[in-house]
Design a protein around this nucleic acid. Structure first.
Lengths: 193, 193
DNA sequence: CAACCCATGTAATGGGTTACATGATTAC
DNA sequence: GTAATCATGTAACCCATTACATGGGTTG
């Protein structure tokens, strides 16, 4: 049994958790999973066709209130593939892409003042992310796992804000026109007060 | 002035921080920035040619000890572009891709036991990541910013381990064959003791 | 009756990784 | 002498996003 692609598991999982139409999956992808696993419509719809052709899922056309849509369910094969993935001991993909950290990495020659401006931008970004996730909270409804992953996002950004706060507090005590690299070296030389 | 691509800024930043050959950039990308911004050789080398053609950087062939290599430096235009990006107030790209969280999201129908097995896998992954980053610490040398971003990675994974630990501790007190979704709902109903 | 949401898809484009390819030098 | 590291590059492929395209239904 060859392994399925990541978007394939997303689709299977969505069906198993009650998001049974392409549109419902698209919704959930944008609202509930985007902050840790982005999936676009351009992946979802072709994937539905593919998994249907290969016998992992079955679609049924349904017209509720005049509106037409296709509602999918898992076949035995699909359920098996999903369960195998959900319980797999194989190491999972993990990737972070943070342009803010990338700038920090190259900040050696900036002034402390300029570095602190960037830190402020990162802090703001995390604050906005928290606000955004809080707005989504009601949408999770009674899905306990959706609440859990949402909480992870909230806690993660709270951690980041805290981390930036500490860093900024230390930089605040250095001359603001000092070279950032030098200031950081000086801070590290005198570890945590 | 049209904005440059992300890999272009990576290359400019690498040069500014002393990683002046393609190989040195490749090294730094694998060791120092990979945990928050992956960049592959297939991006670096073509980018060097492109930025050179467009006048952002200049390459100079150098043979130190018989080995040939090209050492790059920033032109005025390149320095300007880098500084503008480093000090830009524009919102930065941020993306997390965590297959473990994706599994958590779909874990509604697993047993508490199965869910805890997945949590253990995530915890192990973060522990390994910390070990890996610790091994890289000496490589950062005197680059204060490299140490800083490395520290972020260490602290982030420590946060994650802590988060999983708390979750696991709560799940340990539930019947192990209970449906994960039900257990989580029960835990949430009785907030933090 | 206009704006917005439900609903489904496709095509062009861009981004990125992997594998391949080559060859010199140095350390064991 | 052989394995690892230095050093540079290309091509095929996969993945993913964006924009486009369409049309019915609902709300203000």
């Amino acid at each position: 049994m060859t392994e399925l692609s990541k978007p394939a598991y997303v689709v299977l999982g969505m069906i198993a958790t009650g998001r049974r139409s392409g549109y419902a999956m698209s919704r959930a992808a944008k609202e509930a999973t985007r902050h840790f696993w982005a999936t676009s419509d351009g992946q979802i719809y072709p994937q539905l066709k593919k998994l249907s052709d290969e016998g992992y899922i079955e679609g049924e056309r349904e017209s509720q209130g005049g509106r037409e849509r296709v509602v999918y369910s898992l076949t035995g094969k699909g359920r098996e593939a999903l369960d195998e993935w959900l319980n797999s001991g194989a190491k999972t993909h993990f990737e972070l892409r943070d342009e803010g950290l990338l700038r920090l990495f190259f900040a050696e020659e900036l002034s402390v003042e300029q570095l602190r401006a960037q830190i402020e931008i990162m802090r703001r970004r995390s604050r906005r992310a928290i606000e955004h996730l809080q707005e989504l909270e009601p949408n999770a409804g009674d899905m306990a796992c959706a609440h859990l992953t949402l909480r992870y996002g909230l806690d993660l950004h709270a951690f980041s804000i805290d981390w930036y706060d500490r860093l900024d507090a230390e930089l605040a005590e250095r001359p603001q026109d000092e070279r950032a690299g030098d200031a950081l070296r000086a801070i590290n030389a005198v570890p945590a007060a």
